[in-house]
């Protein structure tokens, strides 16, 4: 009883939070709280096996997959409110109400009538009792459920499967292709140049400077360039330094006025 009255408020609050939380990850977390609390109530009612399985299967595996997908997709506060399936809200309302009625009926029965037979059911231990029921009386239901789940898993795999249309290129073929390309177009076969990491700007958004002082576009990630978060304004750096070293040197105007894009002997990646 103590367990129930401690956990019930937590569960109700967490369940409300699932619906009301702004961030999808917070909802998922609160759902995990509900599940764990549920598991503890199972344990306090003499069903230790159900307690462990509830945590392993629901909290450990299913919720973790939810979280995984949420993090991968990066669902945030701004979700589209357009119905993709017609009449979805109406159906959800009907199903929700039906489920509510069902829950009220079941709970009402549990509260009004007194449940008996826990001692008998757990006579040989909880696990034995459960196993005996599962593998004798309900064996058909279990088998059908198992078949359904396996079908679903195989179906998901078939839907997600993508046929490989061209053979995978081996490392050797890949390097041969790179050298071939180098011979034909002059594209450098090695890795791309690293970003400009020097004393002032130790960051990936700073382009490397080529010997003539112009920034190399290849040295910064395409994504950063597309976002427009690449640091600019290094064109004059080399010329400035040279001027400081030797004010009379005529070559010190290099890179100062007309910055060249891209590297020498290197074609830009689109």
């Amino acid at each position: 009883m103590v367990t129930f009255w401690t956990l019930a408020p937590i569960m109700v609050l967490a369940a409300l939070g699932v619906v009301l939380a702004r961030k999808a990850v917070h909802s998922a977390l609160l759902l995990a709280v509900v599940m764990i609390s549920l598991a503890i109530t199972y344990a306090s009612q003499g069903a230790p096996f159900l307690f462990a399985v509830q945590i392993i299967v629901y909290t450990g595996a299913i919720m973790m997959l939810f979280l995984f997908v949420l993090m991968l997709v990066g669902v945030d506060a701004s979700d589209s409110l357009v119905e993709t399936i017609k009449g979805q809200r109406m159906m959800a309302l009907v199903v929700g109400l039906t489920f509510g009625v069902l829950v009220v009926l079941v709970v009402g029965q549990g509260v009004v009538g007194v449940s008996v037979g826990l001692g008998e059911a757990n006579a040989n231990g909880n696990v034995y009792g459960l196993a005996a029921l599962m593998f004798t009386k309900y064996v058909l239901a279990i088998e059908f459920t198992a078949a359904l789940l396996i079908t679903a898993a195989v179906g998901a795999m078939v839907l997600a499967h993508r046929e490989r249309l061209v053979p995978r290129r081996s490392q050797r073929e890949e390097s041969a292709r790179r050298l071939q390309e180098y011979a034909e177009t002059g594209r450098h076969p090695g890795p791309l140049p690293t970003p400009g990491v020097y004393a002032r700007h130790n960051a990936v958004d700073t382009p490397a400077l080529l010997p003539d002082g112009s920034p190399s576009e290849l040295s910064v990630s395409r994504v950063l360039r597309a976002r427009g978060s690449v640091r600019e304004g290094f064109e004059g750096d080399v010329g400035q330094t040279l001027r400081q070293l030797d004010p009379d040197d005529p070559t010190s105007t290099i890179g100062g006025s007309t910055p060249r894009r891209g590297g020498s002997g290197r074609t830009e990646e689109s």
């Binding site: 764990i36 462990a52 945590i55 392993i56 973790m64 909880n126």
Partner: peptide
Amino acid sequence: LPVGVIYVLAVTSIGIYGIVLAGW
């Protein structure tokens, strides 16, 4: 517990949440 080993498995699976949430 009659399900002692499974309990350990269950509890460690909650510990993963800490790592995943830290990452997120």
